[in-house]
Amino acid sequence: MKRPVARTLSLSCFIMVLAFAAAVVAHGQSAPRSDVQAVRFESVDVFLDSSTHKLAAYQFELFATGGHAEIVGLEGGEHKAFAHAPYYDPAALQGDRVIVAAYSIDAELPTGKTRVARIHMQITGAEVPEYQIKIMETLGPGGEKIAVTAESR
């Protein structure tokens, strides 16, 4: 009596293992892409804070360190004066470094903290890239240099 029970148990175990394996395989096949998680899209928002000064022009350089990031689009800022897509080097292919700049001759200009640009990225791989910003130029409406702080997220 014991032997048939043991045999049944081992057969059951074997079937369960088989079913599990089949489920794993089936899951793998039904998933649309095995690398969906490996390729994803995200955006990097760049904020400048000019305090009480009006911001009329800016230029910064963005570096990506770690991970594999590629630029797939470049968007303007939240304020109407910087809503249009900024200038960049169209040959900035690798995406780990890009210079972005814009100006506005509008009468209404942003003060305080404002998002001036959004950079759309395609990230490949599990590693999360980090971004650094180097401010190169920030100007007020009369062309005078103004001090700002920068932030990206």
Partner: peptide, 17 residues
Amino acid sequence: IDQVAYAAVHLDDGRGA
């Protein structure tokens, strides 16, 4: 104006801006 702006953001040889 665009020409000058594109010159400003040009990467290429590391000279940048």
